[in-house]
Design a protein around this nucleic acid. Structure first.
Lengths: 136, 136
DNA sequence: GTAGACCTGTGTCCTGGTCACAGGTCAACT
DNA sequence: AGTTGACCTGTGACCAGGACACAGGTCTAC
């Protein structure tokens, strides 16, 4: 199986497969006749695992740790529990930030509806942005 | 005013000031005696503007467009209105994604509380992750 | 004169891929 | 054969928005 087939069968782009190959998650053999990379069924299972983990918010380096642990025959489960907790906290923070930003943006758009466009002056670049910041 | 002072007075790191300088938002003069960059009051106003815009979710390249427009004496306000609308839509999408991910993660953590750690097998790397993905 | 704290510019690195590019492969056609 | 053209491949550069490492300059105290 070459990169294109693996990509199609797992629903990702060839670039993604190549990326995971480049960072060592997948270890295809090299076809000597043309230099193409050959992926086997095991690589496909590994690919599916990687995608499952990404869906759960694990970072690529989290997955590296998990794969390494499992490759050594140890249970990666305790590690997965620890890591997801950490990522969950980060995500929670990012989520709150995103929510606050969203509110600021909506608030700015509403505020700007009643305001005219103005040309820049010596000490003002964009009146809308600067006046909103002062008020908020 | 050198990089450190500008950074302190605007509440950012020196690396941020240097970054905005590198991409051309700030144009300090060069002190010939020691090669240090000298920032004037105008740069400081510009810096504050950049930070205000970032706070409203504008990207660095949005800000580049806005600054260019204003530097040519035109009103950047219509552009700002258009851009914030676009960023708002993107943010809305990211916000929804983040919310969905957060729910998946919480759900996984809860699910895993009742499950034991298991060693990897020939076709399973991490039981927790893979079984959760199948179920969800 | 010099030790040491602080400051500076330049260059590299980070995430998680995406894109550009030059060249290889293969079937269909002349 | 030869060749056209579609598709496929690997390698390397690039994206945002800074953070970090490093070598060397500056400045004050002694």
């Amino acid at each position: 199986m070459r990169v294109n087939q693996l990509a199609n069968e797992t629903g990702v782009s060839v670039d993604t497969v190549r990326y995971y190959t480049r960072i060592g998650f997948l270890k295809p053999t090299k076809n000597p006749s043309n230099g193409y990379k050959e992926y086997c069924a095991k690589e496909k299972r590994r690919m599916r695992f990687i995608l499952s983990a990404r869906q759960l918010g694990f970072s690529v380096s989290d997955i590296a740790e998990i794969l390494d642990t499992a490759d050594q025959g140890e249970s990666p489960c305790p590690l997965a529990r620890r890591l997801i907790q950490k990522r969950l906290e980060e995500n929670e923070k990012g989520f709150q930030d995103s929510q606050r930003l969203r509110q600021r943006m909506y608030s700015a758009v509403r505020d700007w509806e009643t305001k005219p466009d103005r040309a820049p002056t010596g000490n003002m670049i964009c009146h809308l942005i600067e006046e909103f910041s002062e008020s908020g």
